[in-house]
Computed example of a mutant assay.
Amino acid sequence: MDTALSEPASPVAAAGSTVVVCRALAASQHVTLGPLKLDCGVTLDAHRVAFRTYGTLNADKSNAVLICHALTMDQFVADPHPVTGKPGWGDTLVGPGRPIDPAKHFVICANVLGGCMGSTGPLDIRPGTSEPYNLSFPVVTIGDMVRAQAALLDHLGVESLFCVTGGSMGGMLVLQWAATYPERVFSAIPVATAARHSAQNIAFHEVGRQAIMADPEWHAGSYIKHGTRPARGLAVARMAAHITYLSEAALQRKFGRQLQGKDALGFGFDADFQVESYLHHQGKSFVERFDANAYLYITRAMDYFDLAAQHGGSLATAFRGSPTRFCLMSFTSDWLFPTAESREIVRALNSVAANVSFVEVESDKGHDAFLLDEPEMLRTLAGFLRGAGNARGLKP
């Protein structure tokens, strides 16, 4: 059934999660677009996209680069976060002299549909009411997120992207872009990702969701109405997920079995070990900038992603005849999105004679390596973009 929902109102300025959205909107560019038909059958009569741009679109509109963010990231890829004040999450990737340089590229990064940093999501006021959508917000998919981004590009007058890139969930968005809008994507760089979520990853996400929903302050998703936040549940979800972003070698190197601020075991259940204290910090800092219901929705979108299933069970069919130049990257110690999953995509691309290159980066930093200063990754990105730029006719 195709159900229409009218334009979402902006989030109310209330304590907790909605304050995050209001600050994000104040620091972002944002536009209301629509209508948008979702994969679940619901149509949003309008939807808001919050985004950031860096650099200038050139005269022939050939230098646009779309950066797709990961699950817990947002549009603030290259400038300070409006809530935490921390530098942009992609400051090793974007900036003067970086592989993606606003002096050469027109850089776009948008908060995904269903997110909590200004784009339409469960925090928005449901039309015709004074209450947030909460769990009445329709379930969204990676495909829905990409269609919202495409509508944003239409609004910005960008018909074709020089490059679309992203890691983890961002890599899923890249693959969806290349499969859905091949004529709009000159080059694509999916990093540390997969063409579908594995059973293991779905399982980890379900643990996180259950932690949130088990928090007595969640109130079946209506925590704003009750003046509460499921902070403990969301913190546990973040702690569990963060373990999957690292490798055993990285955890051992950074923490080992070192004690936190003490010389002997405490014989209790406070944080004795540095790794425990680290995870507590990750959980606490996360709840300051993220919304619990948005976490439910975005993790569900990742779980539902299966590019082959969208094309009759054939991943190769998703890329047949594609004009896009691909460069895939994985990391040797990434057990969340292991190299085998990138190789599966490469094989599918090769089977339809697509233009594809692949690099497995040697790193012991785990999945989060794509967010860090990994010289081989950055050299590969820079080299690929330089070659693609020459083919595109961009000025060096």
Rank of each mutant, 00 (worst) to 15 (best):
residue 271 A to W: 13
residue 253 R to L: 03
residue 273 F to E: 02
residue 203 A to E: 04
residue 219 H to I: 14
residue 255 F to P: 07
residue 220 A to N: 12
residue 264 A to Y: 00
residue 224 I to L: 15
residue 217 E to L: 15
residue 201 N to G: 06
residue 207 V to E: 03
residue 269 F to K: 12
residue 270 D to V: 14
residue 206 E to H: 08
residue 227 G to W: 13
residue 256 G to N: 07
residue 201 N to I: 14
residue 251 L to T: 08
residue 246 L to C: 04
residue 204 F to S: 03
residue 270 D to F: 08
residue 257 R to Q: 10
residue 207 V to K: 05
residue 201 N to D: 02
residue 223 Y to I: 13
residue 226 H to K: 14
residue 259 L to T: 09
residue 262 K to D: 00
residue 192 A to L: 02
residue 220 A to E: 14
residue 195 A to D: 05
residue 246 L to I: 07
residue 245 Y to Q: 04
residue 231 A to W: 13
residue 271 A to G: 06
residue 246 L to Y: 04
residue 269 F to V: 13
residue 258 Q to M: 06
residue 251 L to D: 01
residue 214 A to Y: 01
residue 229 R to W: 14
residue 219 H to Q: 11
residue 212 I to L: 08
residue 256 G to I: 09
residue 273 F to C: 05
residue 258 Q to Y: 07
residue 242 H to A: 05
residue 267 F to Y: 13
residue 193 T to N: 02
residue 238 R to T: 10
residue 226 H to R: 15
residue 217 E to M: 14
residue 228 T to N: 01
residue 219 H to A: 09
residue 241 A to G: 14
residue 249 A to K: 12
residue 213 M to D: 00
residue 244 T to A: 08
residue 242 H to V: 14
residue 220 A to F: 02
residue 226 H to V: 14
residue 226 H to G: 00
residue 203 A to G: 11
residue 203 A to M: 12
residue 205 H to S: 09
residue 253 R to T: 12
residue 240 A to N: 09
